[in-house]
């Protein structure tokens, strides 16, 4: 029987194949002229460093990476380097009075080492102040260039004196801050030992447990924080645990940063089952290319946690 069925299906399949037009693969071409794709961040925070990442777009025919073969002594090193990245650009950030030249660094940057190969300022006199207008100029030897502009947001301020001295695990807590007239802020709260012990945090999407995020609109002044138990069965208590800290991070941002990462950050601009995700290459605070030039400032606080 199976033979008959398989034969029947095979016959139908063969019939369909015989009649079906052949798939002809063709190269996808475009007349897109590459432009610079820049992410520049100016930080008014003493810990977070200002940086500029300079990429370019590729047209559809161009390879995304290049195979590099290096010989050092007798050793041969083979590796790929990204063709998106531009390493020899001239990057100048200015507040209208002074110009700060950013230089290319190939070491990893960021808490998780995820953003590497950025341009940094090597001096120690870069102090963006709230309300200042800063400009960005990027030019490449290939003739590509962009300009950018950002207005540094006000310094955020958590009213720490109104916070409790300790945070009991199941309590709610009113967090207040200095509201802003025109700028959005983002408040992130979480426990220091979040990933290791006493927590029920399950990733960015679900926002369960201690790790909570609140996007603060202009004029908003307070937020009631509580640990969000999404699933009682996962509410674990580590017997070994006896100490943790609740971290509060309040970041103010300019409109460019808000538009790029918050307003449109979660919204897939284009999705297709056959192509995947895509976008039109939005730009905020950038002229002549795509990307974002934004500025942020941060205030931090921590509270001891008690069971």
């Amino acid at each position: 029987m199976r033979f008959v069925l398989i034969s029947l299906l095979g016959f139908i399949f063969y019939g369909c194949l015989s009649f079906a037009p052949e798939l002809e693969w063709e190269d996808v071409t475009s007349d897109h002229d590459p432009v610079l794709n820049v992410f520049g961040l100016l930080s008014a925070d003493s810990i977070l460093t200002s940086f500029v990442r300079v990429n370019r777009t590729l047209d559809m025919e161009e390879a995304a990476d290049s195979l590099i073969r290096d010989t050092i002594g007798d050793a041969v090193f083979i590796y790929y380097i990204s063709r998106f990245l531009i390493r020899d650009a001239e990057v100048i950030v200015s507040n209208g009075v002074n110009e700060y030249i950013f230089e290319y660094n190939d070491y990893s940057f960021g808490q998780n080492g995820s953003l590497s190969e950025v341009y940094l300022y090597q001096g120690d006199d870069l102090y963006p102040q709230p309300g200042e207008t800063w400009t960005l100029n990027v030019t490449t030897p290939g003739g590509l260039s962009v300009t950018g502009e950002t207005i540094v947001p006000p310094l955020p301020q958590i009213f720490s004196e109104e916070l409790p001295d300790t945070f009991q695990l199941d309590q709610t807590m009113e967090i207040t801050w200095q509201s802003m007239a025109d700028n959005y802020q983002i408040m992130n709260v979480g426990n220091y030992l979040g990933y290791f012990g006493y927590d029920d945090y399950y990733g960015d999407e679900s926002r369960c447990g201690f790790w909570q995020e609140n996007i603060i609109k202009p004029e908003e002044e307070s937020w009631t924080y509580r640990r969000d138990i999404c699933d009682e069965s996962n509410k674990s208590y580590d017997e070994e645990w006896d100490e943790d800290l609740l971290l509060l991070n309040l970041m103010s941002m300019d409109n460019n940063y808000f538009d790029y990462f918050i307003k449109f950050g979660e919204d897939a601009e284009f999705t297709s089952t056959t192509l995947g995700e895509g976008g039109s290459g939005r730009s905020f605070g950038i002229e002549g290319g795509i990307g974002v030039f934004g500025s942020v400032a941060i205030d931090r606080h921590w509270i001891p946690m008690i069971p």
Partner: peptide, 8 residues
């Protein structure tokens, strides 16, 4: 965005 330090 997380409570330690934003990252990109």
């Amino acid at each position: 965005h997380d409570p330690f330090m934003p990252d990109w």
